[in-house]
Design a protein around this nucleic acid. Structure first.
Length: 593
RNA sequence: GCACCCAUAGCUCAGCUGGAUAGAGCGCUGCCCUCCGAAGGCAGAGGCCAAAGGUUCGAAUCCUUUUGGGUGCGCCA
């Protein structure tokens, strides 16, 4: 018998990587004995959960990967490897299967050790050093400062925020950043709209023509402007007030946006102003960097095929040779009148990120920005000489449902759903979790009724319920006079967790460190949400077994030691759920009401 | 016209740097509460992974082509 605690002390948290280390060591041993030739590449040797749990706890493809380079039959390699592995106390059995898979069953003590490991490391269980402390910049939301955030922004905000937390968890040094588009024509439009509201506040009749924002949300901004400057701008020309009002209005909008983000629980590290790039030579510097690489030239673009703008005429512009870095056509950085295109400050902004020393950049855009992916990647590739990878994640549309009907958004009809609307109706936790129950590149249905349903159909409820159940067990146990503080649970005799149903729960918990690494590697936080659902299912399934078999209940009357072992298992589930929800930005529920 | 994203059970969707007999929920069918943990539980049926080629010991996954859907395409941001 092995003592689970002893194993824990020496074991890394991720059992899969631990077993891979063992497999590699055994392979090297086989090389030393001359069974395997030297010079083999073990990079593709994997230790993974088998698709079918009946095959065992873990499977390795080592024999199949190495068969060809070693010029041996896969089953022969597998057989020898199996014999080697079987001598390790941690391996309960190693069987060759199929074309050369090696199925491993681990000693129960290892699974029990996972529970101990979770209790000892708490919320840190599963935290990885995969990122090696590399600096990553995650840019998300970056909505124009012209109004409140809407549902589409909400998804980007939740996704970006969860991704940032996930990357932090797997060992990156993460910066959360918001790019304020306060340098373009749209903030002039904002300023003019606010000016109209300002005049209105002075009792004037105003008309909102095309090219202005007629929304009511600017009424208080106009009033506030009146409070600040009195009638100084009344009857004045635009060149008198535009700059000041623009400043005032964008500040007001950013306050609005910051409030929205706060309501959702999003805290940015950096708000980067586009405006700060103008007139400071920074755009020029970025373009000079490209020019020095011979990537800037004066030229005339071909009209886009299939959809030629009506007023198309060939004009000479300053172009970036993005085709040298994977783009389809070269992109203009200056308009024909010599002013910057939108792309130019974007280049400068990313140049700034690179010069701040980030090892990797991630941009989270809405799906309507898909056309900018290649040119941004080209720009970053060119500016960093291919040294800084840029990953761009596009979040697809959110389709709203209410009372079984699709909810159409229309600014004009006033059926415009804001982030605030969503958060106020269902709360930030539900909003965040639901937004992460889909891959970022798949459209998402958000049903106001279903997300609040208290049933198994609703993953938010199901996961929260699992956590609340564990909390309930802890309360009940304490009432029954059983000590359930983590100190006591850590010292519990986990060897009592021998029932296969208990081991099954521990196995799911053991997947957590592996899962977060996969999610972190692929920049896909939704995997965390799906895992939490599975983990919750395991706990609920185990709970239900207690209905038929009283010996599987967490609290065993008159047997504190057994109760504590079982509760330790439950507690480990709660800790992982709590950590996972933490990555998603969701507060775990202590009880369901 | 071009580029990007998507296509998996009746429905909504997972599916790990390519692994074994492709999974979950809903819906459907059948069982299970006089009480001790049913805002439920257990079991079953249901698939040509859009199509065709290719790479590989091995493909839902990688490559090519096709079909069907979404998004975008100089002087908007």
């Amino acid at each position: 018998m092995i003592n689970p605690r002893q194993i824990t002390r020496i074991a890394p948290m991720n059992l899969f990587t631990e077993m891979r280390v063992l497999v590699i060591a055994s392979l090297e041993h086989m090389q030393a004995e001359g069974v395997l030739p030297e010079g083999l590449d073990f990079a593709n040797v994997a230790v993974e959960p088998p698709r079918d749990a009946a095959h065992g706890d873990m499977a390795t493809n080592a024999a199949m990967v190495l068969a060809k380079p070693a010029k041996m039959k896969p089953r022969d390699i597998a057989q020898t490897l199996a014999e080697k592995l079987a001598t390790d106390a941690r391996i309960a059995s190693a069987e060759v299967a199929g074309p050369g898979f090696l199925n491993l069953r681990l000693a129960p003590a290892l699974w029990q050790g996972v529970v101990a490991s979770v209790l000892e490391t708490g919320a840190e269980f599963g935290r990885s050093t995969m990122g090696q402390g590399k600096k990553v910049n995650v840019e998300y939301v970056s909505a124009n400062p012209t109004g409140a955030l809407h549902v589409g922004h909400t998804r980007g905000a939740v996704f970006g925020d969860a991704l940032a937390s996930l990357l932090d968890f797997v060992g990156y040094d993460v910066t959360r950043e918001y790019y304020i588009n306060d340098g373009g024509a749209q903030v002039d439009v904002l300023a003019r709209s606010v000016y109209l509201r300002y005049l209105e506040a002075h009792g004037q009749e105003v008309a909102f023509e095309d090219g202005t924002y007629p929304g009511d949300y600017l009424i208080p901004v106009g009033a506030a402007l009146k409070d600040k400057v009195g009638d100084a701008y009344v009857g004045q020309d635009e060149d008198v007030w535009l700059v000041e009002v623009r400043e005032f209005a964008t500040e007001a909008m950013m306050d609005l946006i910051r409030d929205d983000l706060r309501a959702l629980g999003v805290e940015m590290d950096v708000f980067f102003s586009e405006k700060a790039l103008y007139g400071t030579g920074r755009i020029e510097a970025a373009l000079a960097a490209l020019e020095s690489k011979g990537l800037i030239y004066e030229g005339v673009l071909e009209p886009p095929k299939g959809k030629t703008p009506e007023d198309w005429e060939p004009r000479e512009q300053t172009l970036f040779r993005s085709t040298d870095h994977g783009d389809d056509v070269d992109r203009p950085v200056k308009k024909s009148d010599g002013s910057w295109t939108y792309f130019a400050p974007d280049i400068a902004y990313h140049f700034d990120k690179i010069s701040r020393g980030f090892d990797a950049l991630i941009d989270v855009f809405g799906a309507d920005h898909g056309g900018y992916v290649k040119r941004m990647k080209a720009a970053v590739s060119a500016l960093s000489d291919g040294q800084v990878p840029l990953d761009i994640k596009l979040t697809q549309l959110v389709k709203l449902w209410k009372n079984g009907q699709p909810f159409k958004m229309s600014k004009r009809a006033g059926t415009f759903v804001t982030l605030r609307d969503v958060v106020e109706q269902v709360g930030p936790d539900v909003t965040r979790f639901v937004m992460l129950t889909r891959k970022n590149d798949a459209p998402l249905d958000f049903d106001f009724d279903k997300v609040l349903e208290q049933s198994k159909d609703n993953p938010v409820f199901y996961v929260q319920y699992a956590h609340a159940r564990v909390c309930s067990v802890l309360r009940k146990a304490a009432e029954a006079g059983i000590a359930v503080d983590d100190e006591t649970l850590i010292a519990a005799d986990l060897g009592k967790l021998s029932h296969e149903a208990e081991i099954a729960v521990a196995k799911k918990v053991a997947e957590w460190p592996r899962l977060v690494e996969i999610a972190g590697r692929t920049n896909e936080p939704h995997r965390v949400a799906f895992y939490l659902y599975e983990l919750a299912s395991e706990l609920h399934a185990f709970w239900n077994k207690g209905n038929d078999d009283a010996s599987l209940r967490f609290i065993q009357e008159g047997d504190a030691a057994t109760s504590q072992a079982k509760i330790a298992l439950a507690r480990s589930v709660a800790i992982v759920i709590s950590a996972g929800l933490g990555i998603l930005g969701v507060t775990p529920a202590q009880e369901m009401r």
